[in-house]
């Protein structure tokens, strides 16, 4: 590593400029990340976020979609599976231009009609049109030819595959795309999805429903103490380190107000339900919450807090 600092620090002013602008963006009237309404993908949960293709490379994706304002309209999907096009290094996150000999002459592409979104939330896990459309297998040949010494970093940290999922309204052409990685590794202990036990308020009361017109409430995700898994990462300088996952919680709401769209373990967000009158009049959707927990290795879990009956 060779460091000459003149140019290295020259661009840091841009960072400061960006941080300053961060303070400005809160007043710009942008939609909040926690607001549900338009068509969006909230998660692409994999039953196995990491696989060892030398043992079993199969995994199944569960897309989590919200289309509250679509109110049950017909949606189509396209799901692709390909060798990661090096998104971390700047490649576009798609499979279109990245044919992969390991998977055949081109990426695996499947299409169908989406199911599973239902009244009243139109938010949650969706189902494939044809059984098995969301199940893929990382070929064992991916790792078998790698040298155990020269490719120790890749074998341990993993080689990513990409799953690209696109939902389209065939009538309007409205479309959203999401992608995720499936990590192929020879680690003995593979990553698993975090456990989400539920949601509770600041008094420790479990929250199972939310209602319009209620009081402001502080909410946190209930997680087991060992929700953050430890794992060993290897680096290109030959070093390795035992790391612990970072856990993020994402909060979504159909109406009302959340103090923020994200929280960390043991931290709260404040939910202010909408006025009952506005819900009754139909100006505001009935409130419900959707909570997602992610680790920083691709694992995820979610829970829906429905409107009180």
């Amino acid at each position: 590593m060779k460091y000459q600092v003149r140019r290295l620090v020259g661009s840091w002013g841009f960072l400061l400029g960006g941080l300053t602008s961060l303070s400005a963006c809160s007043d710009m009237g942008f939609p909040e990340a926690w607001e549900l309404g338009t068509l969006r993908v909230l998660a692409l949960q994999a039953d196995r976020p990491e696989v060892n293709p030398l043992v079993d490379g199969s995994f199944t994706i569960t897309p989590v979609v919200s289309d509250l304002s679509g109110e049950g309209r017909a949606l189509e999907y396209e799901i692709q599976f390909c060798y990661d096009p090096a998104v971390a290094y700047g490649a576009d996150p798609d499979c279109d231009n990245h044919p992969d000999a390991l998977l055949g002459s081109s990426a695996v592409t499947r299409t169908g009609v989406l199911g599973g979104l239902s009244d009243p939330t139109y938010t949650g896990a969706v189902t494939e049109g044809a059984v098995g459309d969301f199940t893929f297998t990382v070929p064992a040949t991916l790792l078998s030819f790698l040298d155990s010494e020269e490719n120790a970093v890749e074998l341990n940290n993993g080689v990513p595959f990409s799953v690209v999922f696109t939902v389209t309204d065939p009538l309007t052409g409205e479309s959203v795309t999401a992608f995720r990685r499936i990590n192929a590794t020879t680690r003995s202990i593979l990553n698993s999805n975090p456990t989400l036990l539920g949601v509770q308020d600041s008094d420790g009361n479990t929250i199972t429903t939310v209602a319009a017109g209620g009081d402001e409430v502080d909410l946190e995700a209930v997680l087991p103490d060992d929700v953050a898994e430890s794992y060993t990462a290897k680096f290109r300088d030959g070093s390795s380190e035992t790391l612990t996952e970072a856990i993020f919680i994402s909060w979504f709401s159909s109406s009302g107000e959340l103090s923020g769209g994200r929280s960390e373990v043991n931290t709260f967000v404040t939910f202010t339900p909408p006025d009952a009158d506005t819900v009754t009049s139909g100006d505001t959707p009935a409130p419900f919450l959707f909570v997602l927990v992610r680790d920083d290795r691709g694992g995820s879990q979610f829970v829906s807090i429905p409107t009180a009956p």
Partner: peptide, 13 residues
């Protein structure tokens, strides 16, 4: 944009 479901962020197109 494209949603990065692993990291809960959006990639600009």
């Amino acid at each position: 944009s494209v949603f990065d479901a692993d990291n809960d962020v959006y990639f600009p197109v």
